[in-house]
């Protein structure tokens, strides 16, 4: 046997094994895809079976409701500005719920994050406890807390604000502690060497480093919380969602009011989304 004979056989076997590997890989991803498709289709079937109306039957009815809202809004177009003005106090309440819960949630999340970050926490042994605490706060959906608090405190903005603030605190606690992990420890050592207390070390050594990051997360959260407070209003916690529910339950005849609320809600969400992304962009790229 000479070398020249074995060389092509060598590339052949490499080629063989490469192709076998790609075949195997392709088979695995094919199987994964198949499982996913089966799950998806059968899941859709189950969801459709348990639904009041089927997908195909409902599809033609999809434009009916927007059409009737639209036609009623056009018919009573003169009332629309009035409806928009009427709903502004409720809108203010929704935005206030979002703002106050973002603010308190962020402050609480900041505390939780500092207590849960190894190396920064005043009680290193308890970092796990605070981590679990923010996990649990994050896991409880807002609606659960809101409904229970509505039962105790009565309807209105406060239950919604508390519910969203608790969730925000948990979410922020997790995000912020990830940010805290990457903090430069040198300023902390410097502060410790001149005898700063824990609070002073955090306030002067950590917060200035992470503040832009925190701020940008808080803005993002504010966007999310406006949506959340609108939804919670719908289940009875005041604000624009509550107005929308009232207008909707009246149905025909009040749909122009619903149209006004839709417009206001849409405009608000777009406005705050744009504002916050503008500020965040400026924070990351310039200034």
């Amino acid at each position: 046997m000479t070398l020249s004979d074995s060389a092509p056989r060598g590339t052949d076997s490499i080629r063989e094994s490469y192709l076998a590997m790609t075949r195997r890989k392709r088979m695995y991803s094919g199987i994964m895809l198949l499982i996913f498709v089966v799950l998806f289709i059968s899941g859709f079937q189950i969801a459709q079976d348990r639904n009041a109306g089927g997908f195909i039957d409902g599809l033609p009815q999809l434009p009916d409701f927007p059409a009737s809202v639209l036609s009623e809004a056009i018919e009573k177009a003169a009332n629309l500005p009035g409806h928009i003005v009427d709903v502004l106090p409720a809108l203010l309440e929704t935005v206030n719920i979002a703002a106050v819960s973002t603010l308190t949630g962020t402050l609480a999340g900041m505390m939780l994050a500092l207590l849960a970050t190894r190396g920064l926490a005043p009680w290193p042994r308890l970092t796990g406890v605070f981590r679990r605490l923010s996990d649990i706060l994050r896991a409880v959906p807002e609606i659960v807390v809101a409904l229970v608090l509505i039962f105790v405190l009565g309807g209105g903005p406060v239950p919604a604000a508390i519910a969203i603030a608790l969730h925000t605190a948990g979410a922020m606690g997790k995000l912020f502690s990830e940010v805290n992990e990457n903090v430069d420890r040198k300023p902390l050592e410097g502060l410790a060497s001149v005898g700063a207390t824990w609070g002073q070390r955090m306030w002067l050594g950590v917060i200035p480093q992470v503040a832009p990051n925190y701020f940008s997360y808080a803005l993002l959260r504010f966007e999310i919380n406006i949506r959340a407070s609108a939804i919670l209003g719908f289940v009875g916690a005041g604000g624009i969602g509550y107005e929308l529910k009232n207008a909707m339950t009246f149905g025909q005849g009040k749909l122009d009011e619903a149209a006004g609320i839709f417009i206001v809600l849409f405009a608000t969400i777009v406005f705050f989304d744009q504002m916050s992304s503008l500020i965040r962009n400026r924070l990351t790229y310039g200034g």
Partner: peptide
């Protein structure tokens, strides 16, 4: 919220 309302008008309640 708005999508949910519109869709539940068309498809009825359910998952």
């Amino acid at each position: 919220l708005i999508f949910t309302i519109i869709l539940s008008r068309a498809f009825g309640p359910g998952p």
